[in-house]
């Protein structure tokens, strides 16, 4: 698909953001998104299906989100499309957790 992910040669992206001494993950949620994606690779979703899922993020969102936000989008899209979890269950669990905090 001719999505924003196909960005070879695009202009206007600014300087390369070189971050010295960067950690592997910048937060616990990044680590968890990565690990949940890895743990569903192959057994639930071929890796190319997860790549394609991140490309299906709406272009404006794709270009304004961070790397692991796009992974989160792909994970959520695939688990809901394959009926492993429903969107309503996710929203309900978010509300429950928010109340508990």
């Amino acid at each position: 698909m001719n999505g924003p992910h196909d960005m070879g040669g695009m202009h206007g992206m600014g300087p390369i953001p070189i971050e010295p001494d960067e950690p592997v993950f910048h937060s616990e949620w990044e680590a968890k998104v990565f690990a949940m994606s890895f743990a569903t690779f192959c057994n639930f979703f071929p890796v190319d299906e997860t790549r394609h899922a991140s490309e299906r993020m709406p272009p404006g969102d794709y270009l304004s989100s961070a790397y692991y936000e796009r992974w989160l989008y792909a994970l959520e899209l695939l688990i809901t499309e394959h009926n492993l979890v429903t969107p309503a269950e996710i929203e309900q669990r978010i509300a429950e957790l928010a109340q508990g905090e």
């Binding site: 569903t40 959520e76 688990i79 492993l84 979890v85 669990r93 978010i94």
Partner: peptide, 17 residues
Amino acid sequence: ALRVKAIESLLVEKGIV
């Protein structure tokens, strides 16, 4: 972070991860 926590708890509960 909250969204990720919610998804993690659901996936664990359902035996997916």
